[in-house]
Each structure stands twice: as structure tokens, then as C-alpha cells.
Design a protein around this nucleic acid. Sequence first.
RNA 1: GCGGGUGUAGCUCAGUCGGUUAGAGCGCCAGGUUGUGGCCCUGGAGGCCGGGAGUUCAAGUCUCCUCACUCGCCCCA
Length: 430
Amino acid sequence: MHYKAPRGTKDILPSETWRWQAVEHKFREVCRLAGFGEIRTPTFEETELFTRSIGEVTDVVSKEMYSFQDRSGRDLTLRPEGTAPVVRAWVENNIGAHGLPSKLFYIGSMYRYERPQAGRYRQFDQFGLEAIGSDDPTLDAEVIALTARFLEQTGAAPFAIRLNSVGTVDSRTLYVEALKGSVEPYLQKLCGSCQTRYEKNPLRMLDCKNPECRALTENVPRLQDYLDEESALHFQRVREALDALGLSYEIDPRLVRGFDYYTRTAFEFTDQALGAQDAICGGGRYDNLVEEIGGPATPAVGMAMGVERLLTVLDSRSAKIGVRPHPVVFVVRLGEKAQVPGLALAARLQELGVPAEMDYGGKSMKAQMKRADKSGARLALLLGDDELASGQVSARDLIAQHQWRLPLQNCAEMIQDYLSTSESGEIEAA
RNA sequence: GCGGGUGUAGCUCAGUCGGUUAGAGCGCCAGGUUGUGGCCCUGGAGGCCGGGAGUUCAAGUCUCCUCACUCGCCCCA
């Protein structure tokens, strides 16, 4: 075998695409009910859109982007995340003119050059929500509640919601100074990555999993104490809204998000089934991003969910979502003369909306019946010399195990009738 | 980018101290009555033993390199 799917990518085969379709369908439905409209943006964007919005020093920008020049020398990048492109499209198309906030959702593949691992791929898929144009805390709560509802309806529950506020840029700057000052005396005792974080991204020291670092940072100043009054009040309002909705969550003062553009509300939905990559989705507010990208100062809040991770969780729950496609009727053709009439019969059934299949290559009846059985079809329609001579078709209910004859003439219509009037439950009982 | 583990049939895996034609279960195909599925029985197809180099009379087996997968670190969905 010479060619393989590139590292970190994979084929999604018919045996599982139906599950993808099912969760996509459910996500669209939940979004529709809440007034979110689908937006589809290009797979690649100008590189600068991402370097500016996500932050130059973040891992994603500094070492994970699929960047290239096109034949005209334009610097382009396969999108590593969905928010910046949506905001760009929002500004470019003046979507806000239709009234604020603009409530948008997207479904699409993202690309990051990372070491593949459980729940982490170089091409992966996200469902995302973006609500642009309001800083109303109930909007934050709605985004979180919508996400929770979607996860519940797909069967992903139970999951944990972690919540925090990272404040405004100003309050965060103050806090980072205080944090660094507090940590400085025992900087040498921290793990190697925390020493790097101290320089590059001090907030992430709070999120370190190393127990020793945890202990050392135990009594460090709390971000919440440095929140400006407005952010603190906003955070409280978000919590009150979530409480009123009956959503349980856990305040995690150490929760920090990886992209620079986040402000105030930050949240994550996690599940233990995912191992090290335990976040199903993450999100929060990004009140400065629209302006940074060149639009008017506009607050916004959003969420992004990893579809592969969601499916992993659903697997671990044995969640029942969607139905694996299978024929309802299987046409068994016996002999040369039955080939075309059998094809026509299957075609007629398909036209009527009845999933119908056949076997090919003139196999034995036994082989065809086996295939019919395995296909999950409920009915087998037998068409051979006898039937052609008498103008009749033999129908066999593979579940109820009874067989009868019906005229070939309007066979498809009668079968459709039979299927709609007899519930499968009754058949199984009979 | 850094560490550990694993690569044998479509799938899940055996394969002894290095030794002759590389195995099982499931799946697939065909048969066991001539036109009737599930259970059972018989037979068959299907392997560059991930790839490359080396050691050896001899490598699926030992060594090195490489690629992929996998678990973790970093980070993130």
C-alpha cells in the first residue's frame, strides 16, 4: 500500500458517517430553535488574521499553523480555529446591520500541526457558536445552556461545566503582575514548563497539573480579587442566570483559556472518558476581538466543540443517536428474466421513498437471502420464473416469517401500504 | 517539539530458544436439495509479518534507522 492518509488525518467511512450526520443534524436543530444561523467561511484565511487575533506567542500561532504562500505570494493559513474567520466575515459583510446581537453557528474542519494523540488530530472538526454584538450576561448563559442542551440531547451527559472569569485586559494585566511578583521567590522550584510560562503566559501557571506547582501556587493571589467591578458583576450575573436555568457548574479560578482574545467569561465542558484531552468544548467572551480585527468595538461570546471528542464521549456512553441506514425491502432476483423487472421494482420502491436494495451478479437464492437478512431489511421480495409467469411477487416478512403473494403490477404501492399500516412492533409480537 | 508502548489476513490477536510450506477466531466467498435468511457442518480466497538496512548458514523473531498508530508532556476541541 503506497498512499496513506497524512499523519493526524483519517477517513470517515460510511459505517460511521451516519453518526456524524446525526450529531450535525442535532446541532443544527438546537441552533435553529435558538435563532442561530449557519455561517460558512473559507477553509483558509490571510495568515495575519490568526496571528493578530489568537496571539503571536500562543502555541497555535507559533508552531501549529498550516501556513503557505499561494502562487501570487499571498500568505495564507488553513484555519486553526473558527472564531476569527467568523468575526472577519461579520465585519466584512456588515452582518451587524441586521440587528444585534448576530447569532451565528458553524460546522467545519480546523487544522493544527500538532503531535496526534487520543482526541487530537491535525485535521479535526468543530461545531461553534458565536454571538456578536452584546455583552449581556444572559447571552453568555444562553450560549452555555445551548451547549449543555445539545450535549444532553445527543446523550453525552453527564459532563462537567467549569466556569471562570478572566476579567478585562486591564484587570488581567494588573493581576499578571501581582501573580509574577508572588511566584518570583520560588520560581526555581517550579517545573520547567511553569518557568517558561512565567515568561510567556503566566496565567497558565495556574492550570499546571504538576502537584508540586499546585502546592507552590496554592496561596498565590486570586484572579477574582483583581477583577474590575464591572467584570465581577458580569460574572455574578452569568452565574445567576445559569442557576436560574438549573445548570450545575463548578467555579474554577484556575481555568484559563489558550487564546489571547478571551475576556471575562471563560468556560469548558469536560468529560473523563476523554483522557488527557478532556475538554469536549471550550468558549467564552472576546470583547476586544472585533475591534482588533478592524471592526467597531463590539463585545461577543462564543463556544467551540470538538466533534471527534464528542463522538468519543458518545461511544463511551453507548449513546443512541441516529440510525444506521439500512434497506427496508430487499429484492431477490432469480434467473436471467427477473433481472430487469427486479431492478424496476426496486427503483419504484425508491421513488416511493422506501429504501430498497438488491444483490448483483446472479447469485444463488440462498446467498441473496443471506444478504437480505444481514442487510437488516424487513421484507424480501422474491422475483423468479414462477412470479413472472403468474404476474405476482412473493413477499416475505423476514421478521414475522410469513410469506404471501401480491400482484407485480402495483406491488411497490402495496408494499408501501403494508409498511405504513403494520408497525414493526406488532410484527415482532406476531 | 520531548518521553513510553505497539505494528503479523478486512477485524481482534497467537506465533516457543532465531529453524522448513506463517496460524486461530470473526468476517468474506462457495457448497451441504431443485427457489427460501438467522443455527450448524465442509471447503476456499485472502499476508512484502509497516518500510529500509544490518547480524546470521538461517530473521515474523535479534540490532539500528524510518514511518504509522497509541499513551503521556506541552498545548488545545
